[in-house]
Amino acid sequence: MSVALSIKQLSKTYDNGFEALKGIDLEVKEGDFFALLGPNGAGKSTTIGVICSLVTKSGGKVSIFGHDIDTDFAAAKKELGIVPQEFNFSQFEQVRTIVVNQAGYYGLKKSLAEERADKYLKQLGLWEKRHTPARMLSGGMKRRLMIARALVHEPHLLILDEPTAGVDIELRRSMWEFLQDINAKGTTIILTTHYLEEAESLCRNIAIIDKGNIVENTSIKALLKTLNKEVFVLDTREALTAAPEVEGYQLKLVEEHSLEIEIEKGGSLNEVFESLTRSGVHVVSMRNKANRLEELFVSLVNGSADKTEKAEVKA
């Protein structure tokens, strides 16, 4: 299977000297449904900006289906459809005109442009609004207008930057279904999100970005597994030279008075204590070891709370 998006050592320092991306690597396979997750200010929109050439990169390479965005830009851009985080259409133009014109910028003949525009406006529930000026649409409709506009040249890679921010639950579900459908028909999709739930229900693979670095790049399944485990540190009265064997559990000796153990959330420690007692080891204290990913998720959840509030104030 070919590679839809390849990012190598991508860095971006903004004009004010802020280093938003610190040399990230990312690869998304054709057909994937991929999530880019990260707290506010992590660098998600900057990454997407570079991919669609609205942000000039400071270093590194980006290619889309093998087309380098610097040397083969027209071919790269034809493969790419982009749904930005902020609305970026003319407020005064009509819905259908916006979509038809976008097709024109990709060199599609007028008849084909109109056929495609009508197809996607119908699929996205905007057909009734086709002659409405964009400014009169609701927030959710504006978002769907941008999806129709991004799809009109039928790109193989669709990137959505926080597509469901500010969209109510019901509409969010129908948007998910729509995206799953076009993914099933072969379009590779990358979306950024604040909601782990969204990534969980839609995506197969995930990268987590924080402060301009990719901190995790794995499958959703593996990530959930990691998140579902807790690590405890047990301090023992006896000095140990090796970790005691406990059936069904992995214990790790950290220092001579300290052991680490991984437990599934909601699992029981009783068996472990019993077994330790039998081997003559006494636990004098116990604490929860901070999980780096978990901390990140707490900040994510808080971050997304901020975000929703802001979106509401804006509306």
């Binding site: 609205l54 830009f73 071919a75 976008q102």
Partner: peptide
């Protein structure tokens, strides 16, 4: 909306 043109080929 100039971005519509800037992201296009």
């Amino acid at each position: 909306n100039i971005e519509e043109l800037l992201v296009s080929p």
